[in-house]
């Protein structure tokens, strides 16, 4: 149900303000932290102790960030009350074994514990993606094509950080992940436009496409390739930083700039006195 009705203030979708940069911080920390755990296991360049410490620090910072946003922070234990349907509860529950296994890896420098933490971290990352998908009021979040984007960008951010800490090692994996992320991001944007979305969402996404493509994908790949060809690890480090920061930028964009709500719609324009009812009206959608 889309139409050419001009945007009407208070009726057309507007940018949600319930979740701000602090909520984005949870997705940034969670994605980078869990992605880093997975990359650390896959690459094997870092000690389990260091890898688990860095990964859990990011996840913890993310949770602290969102804790700062909730209205009643000292009641946050209530978060665990609804595992039947709430992906936020599930995220919280999965965080418990994640920190337990990560803590074991830190304490005992255990590779087995790190592998366990990485596997649980993947589940945590999935929960975060599902949190957005369950937000029915935000068309840009509920679109199913966002789930693989959130998974891919979390892994890419983590791999980027791993390349930084491993001083350039792991570049090949990072290049693959960057390519995957860009492909999924492109598909998400295309499908969102095809399926219909608030005009404001599409405008906000379009505004940042060039930066995301050039600074977030082309530049890091070029840097990583040059680093391999020239044997210059600092270029790979720079590429890792760019790949990671680009993922953070995508999340900030999604949570704080592109998150237009559903807006209101008229099921049918009513009959007034005489005549016939008008067609449905859904202003502000493209």
């Amino acid at each position: 149900m889309t139409d050419q009705t001009p945007e009407i203030k208070g009726v057309s979708p507007w940018l949600q303000t319930n979740w701000d940069i602090r909520a984005a911080g949870n997705f940034i920390g969670g994605g980078t932290g869990t992605g880093f755990l997975v990359a650390a296991v896959f690459l094997g360049f870092l000690s389990p102790r260091l890898a688990a410490f860095v990964g859990l620090t990011f996840v913890g910072l993310g949770l602290f960030s969102v804790w700062l946003e909730i209205g009643r922070p000292w009641r946050s234990i209530n978060l665990f009350f609804h595992p039947q349907t709430s992906w936020m509860t599930r995220e919280g529950l999965v965080a418990l074994p994640l920190f337990a296994l990560g803590g074991l890896a830190v304490l005992f420098n255990s590779q087995a514990a790190l592998i366990g933490a990485a596997l649980v971290g993947l589940v945590y990352l999935y929960c975060q993606a599902r949190i957005l998908m369950a937000a029915k009021g935000i068309p840009a979040w509920r679109h199913p094509a966002l789930l693989p984007v959130m998974m891919a960008t979390g892994l890419t951010e983590g791999a980027g950080l791993a390349v930084v800490l491993a001083q350039g090692q792991g570049a090949f994996l990072l290049i693959l992940l960057i390519a995957l992320r860009f492909d999924l991001w492109r598909r998400y944007n295309r499908r969102l436009a095809q399926d219909g979305a608030p005009a404001g969402t599409l405008r906000a996404l379009a505004l940042r496409q060039k930066q995301i493509l050039i600074a977030g994908h082309i530049a890091p790949v070029v840097l990583l390739v040059l680093a391999s060809l020239l044997g210059a690890p600092f270029l790979a480090t720079l590429g890792g930083v760019l790949a990671t920061v680009a993922g953070w930028g995508i999340k900030v964009l999604l949570i704080t700039k592109a998150a237009y709500n559903q807006g209101f719609a008229l099921p049918r324009v009513p009959v007034r006195g005489q005549g016939s009812p008008g067609a449905p009206v859904k202003p502000g959608w493209a």
Binding site: Q16, N18, W19, V66, E69, I70, G71, R72, P73, R75, S76, N78, L79, S86, M88, I131, A134, A135, K136, G137, I138, W141, A259, N261, Q262, G263, F264
Partner: peptide, 13 residues
């Protein structure tokens, strides 16, 4: 707890 998850889940604002 005031997480506002319900607010972003509600399509009726």
């Amino acid at each position: 707890i005031g997480c506002a998850y319900c607010a972003v889940a509600c399509p009726y604002q």
